[in-house]
């Protein structure tokens, strides 16, 4: 065929020597993300507990939760799509975390980029939605309808932030962004250069995680009226795993965009935990938002702040 002869093989050749390292990354990064994610979950639960004057769970509680759910005897499946949905939910985030550059491992991140990452994070939502839909429970479907509406809400400021950042750094490549920030010290960090966008990004992050006060679509407290209504056993366990990856993704993404990424693992993890902890702490004291109110909020303040931020970036 003609097009075969015209195919440019340079791109492949460049990758050729590093494929082994990349495969290693592919295996290592989800593992690291999972462990860090477990830590983040633990931290959030601790914070919430302390704010509510409780002791909070022990160190290994998040892991035990997952193991317990997987080990349950009653595993109710509503069909193949129900299961595939969970697989997609986990898989999408696994793919997303491998696209995030961490200290020492950024080969795979070179292949992706900011937009690819953004859309990767939508795949778990779709997977979850499919899985819940298959359950034939209207409560679940209503939850999905709310979740997708919420996605519409927080993605607007998020894409504004993404535009601003990508335009500021002149690249979609996360590795380039980190390199640019680290080269100039703290003064060149995204949060210093683009404080408004960083603020909007924080909002978006909060919505994206589905944590207080925007957790109504997940409805963890009243499980019967949310998307989780038919999720039991390892279906829920899978979602717990997903949550670990989700927190990790959100934290690392924010660190990468605004806090100069990780010079080495210590500062990197510190930044990630701080980024995740601070908004969580603040948000915990707010009452819960209804979905419509959430949409209204996100389309108003973070969007405005974000647009203002873009205006400064593009001046």
């Amino acid at each position: 065929m003609d097009w075969l002869s015209a195919v440019n093989l340079d791109g492949l050749a460049a990758v050729d020597f590093r494929w082994l390292g990349l495969v290693l990354e592919l295996i290592l990064m989800p593992l690291i993300a999972f462990v860090v994610g477990l830590g983040l979950v633990l931290m959030l639960r601790k914070i919430a507990a302390r704010l509510q004057r409780r002791v909070g769970p022990p160190l290994s509680q998040p892991l035990w939760d997952i193991i317990k759910l997987h080990a349950k005897e009653t595993q109710t499946s509503h069909g193949l799509i129900h299961e595939i949905g969970i697989v997609m939910a986990i898989g999408g985030y696994v793919a997303a975390v491998t696209l995030l550059p961490v200290p020492g491992m950024n080969g795979l991140a070179q292949q992706g980029g900011l937009i690819a990452l953004l859309y990767m994070t939508m795949i778990p939502s779709l997977g979850l939605a499919l899985g819940v839909g298959q359950c034939a429970n209207p409560n679940g479907s209503i939850g999905i309808s709310r979740a997708l509406t919420a996605m519409l809400a927080y993605d607007v400021p998020l894409v504004i932030v993404i535009f601003g950042v990508a335009f500021h750094f002149g690249s979609l490549n996360l590795v380039h962004m980190i390199a640019a920030q680290q080269a100039g010290g703290i003064a060149s960090w995204g949060i210093v250069q683009m404080p408004l966008l960083a603020l909007a990004g924080l909002f978006a992050l909060q919505g994206m995680l589905g944590k207080q006060p925007f957790e109504i679509y997940v409805a963890p407290a009243e499980i019967a009226t949310g998307p989780m209504v038919e999720m039991g056993g390892k279906f829920l366990g899978g979602l717990f795993v997903m949550q670990c990856f989700q927190l990790y993704t959100a934290g690392v993404l924010y660190v990468t965009l605004f806090l100069g990424g990780g010079e080495h693992w210590l500062t990197f993890l510190f930044k990630v935990f701080v980024v995740t902890a601070i908004p969580m702490t603040i948000a915990m004291v707010f009452p819960r938002y209804r979905t419509e109110d959430m949409v209204r909020l996100f389309w108003k303040w973070p969007t405005m702040i974000g647009l203002l931020g873009i205006a400064f970036v593009m001046n």
Partner: peptide, 26 residues
């Protein structure tokens, strides 16, 4: 690469879901 990573992710997901825990019942 992207599709490869995604497929690998799905593989991990399938491993987590199908590889551990009890058998699900339709």
């Amino acid at each position: 690469w992207l599709v490869g990573i995604l497929m690998a992710g799905f593989g991990v997901g399938a491993l987590v879901f199908y590889g551990f825990g009890g058998r699900s019942r339709r």
